[in-house]
Write a protein that binds this DNA or RNA. Structure first.
Lengths: 352, 352
DNA sequence: CGTAACGCTGCAAGCGTTTGCGTATTCTAC
DNA sequence: GTAGAATACGCAAACGCTTGCAGCGTTACG
């Protein structure tokens, strides 16, 4: 059995309670400097580490917040997780990862684990399809939730990037370059992130007096675990089948775009001359794609920081119960070569 | 305060102990079917979830194993983590991630958290530079450790891919294609994984009657968080400075290779005609690189499964203390286009 | 009818911490 | 020399759960 407070106390010749107070750094009960030193020394010698379980039990607070993630492998999700992780640690709490790796049936399971671990709050890094039920389980327990993704039917603060604005940036960029037949590779439009991108797409077109041509909407079918390159590759087939061929395509994320890039290259199309491509997310590899990818960057760090800050407000104010907030963070366009705008030289950045 | 066992018990009209036994599924003390049903029903109605903290305290076992990872963002590490995660869950334990995201100073911190959480074992997904001290902290407590990476000076089971064999596969492949001036982009050779790759490189050359030309060894300098594409890009400069130019380069991982690819392309070199490239790891994006990358694939799932199996042997057999085992898993070569071998058609695979 | 055996359930201790409160000691001031 | 205040520390309850053991009611058998 590991070394306990009792061991430290008897080693130092004091009572358990005194040892606890010293080690916790509790200044109030005026412990003598000598005693303090003896306890510290004993703890050091015995290599004492407190036991989280006993601590939580006594404290009534777990100092844990859950991070809900359905697919760390995809796109920027891992970056989001990392940012959340350090924001949480920065506040002295411990993050608890609930990762379902694409297995939707694990989501409720994961929520239950959060409850068993008495998380004081949950932040959703990315939601996945079956999130609704899982998050309800948490909401029922009045566990504060904040999300980095739009969530339907769940009471939670939402801190997302403004996907509409992002899509507008991307599409305007293409329109400015003269493109008019712009395809959109999209996942289910009934899910909010896709829908928002679609709205931005429509709005930007409208600004230029164009309307959406339904034949240019290419659904991404199927779902892949660990990365969607293959999905983009497959979907590009349908893109290529459109007659007459669009001159540009807006992809729902970078992995799709890079997957599509391969299919287009195999079909002999030159990028950007014969087909321009825009992605979404700005994942690390985007700059190293076959043709460096122009894409909409998510300000992941800012997003995570704001989300965690909001969550801790909730955790602190047990009382007031203010209505859920929605914050939209402005994304920016990162211009690389895949649209033909900045064919040479360093990347250019267009602010939102 | 959340609903406790006591609540369930009084709701069902039984004692706490009875409720506990029913909920735990303890068959021994022959609880009547009626009682059992009443307790279950009460628990369901109250949405009871046990409290892990109280449970661990009473049980004396945490049913948690730690996963030590220094850089999830890099290469196959995330895939390893995922594989470990599900192998651990499959055994009814909970994984606890200790992630240091490249901040070496967090590693000891992370080890201490493992101890506070009373992990019953630790598996090292990837080690990072300062691992030694951190792992000693665990070893001191006799916490069983298994590692997916070679570890120096720490008592642990090691389940790695055979990097020497992998390097031999890669270099032989290049030699077979006629290359003789083969550069190697390597990180510090004093670290075991790099060294093993170097050994394989040397051995394969020797098999063909060649010896290592030191001018072809290109060190990768600097360390980047989140992905090493940029590192590969920078390092390729030094590769290009070698006179006469090598005809092929063996990169220590896929991200380096893909980063280098960009630099080579910018320098106007054609791949594979003017410079062949081989990577290591077979990350998802390797197939979608500018030139699909020939690389040595790590059998991540098998590795994780074996590691976890071994760890649980340790956890079960508290007694015998058998000497640390070392298992080397054979990697395989995935041939794509970057060496010119399979310029067209589907990927070919060469078994080890 | 007595008693043993068995089936079912509750009592209570204990896991490692925290913390309110009580107590013993010392000091100050008169 | 003593009241009173500080000062320094220990006692013990509580957190939610598990589990060995005791207790009770019932049945079966001698």
């Amino acid at each position: 059995m590991a070394v306990t407070l009792k061991d430290v106390a008897s080693e130092a010749g004091v009572a358990v309670s005194t040892a606890s107070r010293v080690l916790r750094g509790d200044p109030h009960p005026m412990i003598g400097a000598g005693t303090r030193e003896r306890v510290m020394e004993a703890a050091r010698r015995l290599r004492y580490r407190h036991n989280v379980y006993a601590r939580q039990l006594a404290l009534g607070r777990s100092e844990v917040v859950g991070i809900f993630a359905s697919a760390l492998m995809e796109g920027v999700n891992l970056a989001k997780f990392q940012a959340l992780e350090s924001a949480i640690r920065a506040r002295g709490y411990r993050p608890l990862l609930g990762h379902t790796a694409g297995h939707d049936e694990l989501q409720v399971q994961s929520a239950k684990e959060f409850i068993s671990s008495a998380v004081e709050g949950v932040v959703v890094a990315n939601a996945g399809r079956g999130h609704r039920h899982a998050l309800e389980v948490l909401a029922e327990r009045r566990i504060p939730i904040v999300s980095l993704e739009p969530l339907e039917g769940v009471e939670a603060d939402i801190i997302t990037v403004d996907r509409r604005a992002g899509a507008r940036l991307a599409i305007r960029h293409l329109l400015d370059l003269g493109h008019r037949r712009i395809a959109m590779l999209h996942s289910q439009l009934d899910r909010s992130p896709s829908w928002e991108r679609y709205e931005g797409y429509r709005e930007a077109l409208a600004e230029y007096g164009c309307s959406v041509d339904p034949s240019l909407l290419v659904p991404i079918v199927g779902a892949s675990r660990d990365g969607s390159y293959a999905l983009g590759y497959e979907t590009a087939r349908h893109l290529l089948a459109i007659q007459p061929l669009p001159t540009a395509a807006f992809c729902s994320n970078d992995e799709i775009a890079i997957g599509a890039m391969k299919a287009l290259a195999e079909a002999g199309l030159r990028i950007p001359e014969e087909m321009a491509l825009v992605g979404f997310d700005d994942i690390k590899v985007a700059a190293y794609a076959p043709v460096p990818l122009t894409t909409v960057a998510q300000p992941v760090a800012a997003q995570a920081e704001q989300a965690v800050a909001l969550l801790f407000e909730h955790i602190a104010n047990q009382g007031p119960e203010r209505p859920p907030q929605v914050v939209q963070i402005e994304p920016r366009l990162v211009v690389r070569a895949s649209c033909g705008a900045a064919a040479a030289g360093r990347e250019r950045r267009a602010e939102a």
